[in-house]
């Protein structure tokens, strides 16, 4: 195996530890603020995955939107609502054991199914030269996908106005 392949595997392993470790931290951490910081670690791992998958634009978008916007928004919300910050109290409800079993069962089923499917992986030659052009991605967005693109912009506008109206202090 050539050296750059070995490096890829090592990077993949490190990113997996980061992503799944961060996600587990989100789930088990008692302090909600720590959960949010673990969430940032998990998002950062996914950024690394996108770089490894040659999706540079998505890596930048993930960094800007998930870490730059969503994680910060969640941190703000954690600090604005201090109801369950008591660390002695359990952060899980009574059905956590059933929830864990259901999640584990779904994972096992997915793993078996994914293993059995014969994926139509592209030829070696096509895999070696993926289409990574960002300008073509923009042309796709404004060409075949222009309707979903415009709908997404309307959705963002509605979400913006809705969030402002919902979170505003009501007078009276």
């Amino acid at each position: 195996m050539p050296a750059d392949q070995i490096v890829r595997y090592i990077v993949f392993l490190i990113l997996t530890v980061m992503t799944l470790g961060g996600a587990l931290g989100v789930v088990v951490s008692r302090n909600l603020f720590h959960s949010a910081l673990f969430l940032v670690l998990s998002f950062a791992g996914v950024v690394g995955y996108y770089v490894l998958l040659d999706a540079g634009f998505l890596a930048a978008v993930q960094l800007l939107i998930y870490i730059g916007a969503i994680a910060i928004l969640i941190l703000f919300a954690v600090m604005l609502t201090r109801g369950l910050m008591d660390k002695r109290q359990s952060q899980h409800n009574q059905q956590w054991l059933i929830a864990a079993l259901v999640a584990l069962l779904i994972f096992v089923v997915l793993a078996v199914v994914l293993w059995q499917v014969e994926w139509p992986v592209a030829s070696e030659q096509a895999l070696a030269s993926p289409n990574v052009s960002v300008s073509q991605l923009g042309q796709e967005l404004l060409g075949p996908y222009v309707i979903p693109f415009e709908v997404a912009s309307v959705l963002l506008l509605v979400a913006l106005i809705g969030a402002v109206i919902l979170a505003r202090e009501t007078e009276s």
Partner: peptide, 15 residues
């Protein structure tokens, strides 16, 4: 599945 577990088991809505 980790995300699913968080959705099903956490008490705090932000979690």
């Amino acid at each position: 599945c980790i995300g699913l577990y968080a959705v099903l088991s956490r008490k705090n809505a932000i979690a």
